[in-house]
Design a protein around this nucleic acid. Structure first.
Lengths: 338, 338
DNA sequence: AGCGGATATGTTAGCGTTAACATTCGGAGT
DNA sequence: ACTCCGAATGTTAACGCTAACATATCCGCT
């Protein structure tokens, strides 16, 4: 007995005593303050090692008012797109020395997003990235809590915040132009849900490409991103005679389309060419391997963190940025010359 | 001038003054302490509303020593399995009033996991879930930081921690028995990487089922979970005459196998039956739709949080638990009677 | 009236860190 | 030798909250 060396983890004062300095000097060593004699520094480091001291980041956050934690709000991180984006965000954030706190929403309505933002703001995050691919989510960004810097990913013209997104319109255009360049008369489209900004963008690009080429735009078929909805749209398409090219708004639905065509004896790409969107890892091994538009989710994640950190660190400047990542065409065997 | 009503967010003392009570009473209201007159409570609530007060969780964490944050360490959350598990964890944690801080590792080596654990421990998390599907990751759980409660998901016989996992052996057995019951003489296997516990378990189940039926076990083919590796293994298999049934260790590789068989003119399920593992959303729309073993990732996530919270809240009890989630067979069109 | 014991509130003292200011010390400059 | 300055260190006071203890206040009971 005697010494109060309980199981309590050591604090700065313990290290200070061990090293024979004041706790403030320990703090200086930890924060790499220049004005510390290197001999003192060594002594402190030794004491830290000996005691197994770890600085208490909570106490630090209380006084500095920076938690070095970023919040991420996303929708269904089970899907490849959101999962990849969040992954990119997390990697970039950690690289910059920030923790990442995640909130995955089940349904992404305005209330859900607002709640999530409040929740994160309460926790004291230094900034927030909202992966807001739906219009309703983007709208929720209007009322942000208490000046927490925020960036929207895929957020369209979201409220008053910076946005990082993939150029969906351009992607839709690329897919369509690729098919037209192969000699197809026109291109059908299976679109995503109407409240998704990405779906809108892809439709717009598709329509623009057709218009520019002076081709008629058939009525787009509605899907919900799921393979099943693609399958159902595919069955409709299979029964029509004049369909030779289809641009499907994502790879999962394209898989459903391929399945439907296979069942109906429609040969891809001999009779119909198909282009998807996303380039999920499976696409290369569909039957046939799918031509698709690749989105660089990793880049989106990285950029969103860059923009956010710029906003956090450069306190004053309130200019909202808008960063657009270009998609790219990955040509495989599901498309052929007419 | 005069009043110091700057842009500074209000603190408890401000609310207290506004309501004409002490800050402690405000604290009691916030923490739903019973001994507060309902009239006082109302007055405090009103003041909170009026000032737009939000309690500072960092300060709270400093004094209570509980951050109400859980850490999650995972490997490549881009993959469907990990992504789904993490999603389940996050939902369950938030439901229980905890924040979730995520660290996604690129390569899951022992050092990576150790670093991640340190990192989270520094941040002051109340508990940690490690999604440790690789042996090397599970080993890193041996040296845990400073008594932070920890649960391993898919962690095998991980060090000294509780484990929640899917019964991989049983899954492998189910897949194999299903094929044998359809009249196949034996079942080939395309396995996952050897340092993955899940891969091992599935191999073991497959082997056990064959042994029990007194059938010869062919040498398993090696894969790395990717569709490409499945494709390559599939090409080998396609060139052999006596292959009529294949159990593939995950759905992505199974997709590659189907692709290879299609290319080689091998009909599934007429000539060869194929069973996968995971039941990813795409499997139902492969050509043909894939028979597979479903893992309930959501349940795994939920259970891991339950176990972890039990460990956090019931401080004393150190019994490590082991919770096994059963898989289930999803029968589709890629398997047929011999 | 007086007392015990809930019930409601206030006061004080930290939690472990950094910021701000105070102090000491060793030289360079005159 | 003396001043002055900057480098190195120490001391004190927050940060915003909860825990623990202290102080009313009210009620029923003898």
């Amino acid at each position: 007995m005697g010494a109060t060396q309980g199981r309590r983890p050591p604090v700065m004062a313990d290290v200070a005593k061990e090293a024979g300095v004041s706790h403030q000097t320990v703090s200086r060593v930890l924060n790499e303050h220049p004005n510390v004699r290197s001999e003192t520094r060594a002594r402190v480091m030794e004491a830290i090692d000996k005691l197994g001291y770890r600085r208490n980041l909570v106490a630090r956050a209380l006084v500095t008012k920076h938690s070095r934690t970023l919040g991420v709000v996303s929708f269904d991180t089970t899907l490849y797109g959101p999962a990849s984006t969040v992954y990119g965000i997390e990697q970039a954030a950690r690289g910059a020395g920030y923790f990442v706190s995640i909130v995955s929403l089940k349904s992404i309505d305005k209330i859900g997003v607002s709640d999530a933002l409040d929740y994160l703001a309460d926790q004291g995050v230094d900034g927030i990235v909202v992966v807001a691919p739906q219009r309703s989510a983007a709208q929720a960004l209007g009322e942000l809590p208490f000046g927490v810097p925020t960036v929207a990913v895929e957020g369209g013209e979201a409220g008053d915040v910076s946005v990082v997104c993939v150029d969906q319109v351009r992607g839709g255009r690329m897919a369509t132009e690729h098919l037209l360049s192969l000699g197809h008369e026109t291109v059908w489209h299976i679109r995503g849900p109407s409240d998704w900004l990405e779906a809108e963008g892809r439709v717009a690009g598709w329509r623009a490409a057709l218009e520019q080429a002076g081709r008629p735009a058939p009525e787009p078929l509605a899907g919900d991103w799921s393979p099943r909805s693609g399958y159902e749209a595919g069955r409709s398409l299979a029964s029509m005679k004049d369909v030779t090219a289809v641009f499907v708004a994502n790879d999962q639905m394209a898989l459903g389309v391929l399945r439907a065509f296979t069942e109906q004896g429609v040969k891809v790409p001999d009779q119909v060419s198909v282009v998807g969107f996303d380039d999920i890892p499976e696409s290369e091994f569909f039957s046939p391997p799918l031509t698709t538009i690749r989105q660089d989710f990793g880049a989106v994640g990285r950029h969103s963190i860059e923009v956010l950190l710029r906003q956090i660190e450069g306190q004053g400047s309130h200019e909202r940025e808008r960063l657009v990542v270009p998609p790219s065409l990955v040509s495989r065997a599901s498309t052929a010359r007419r």
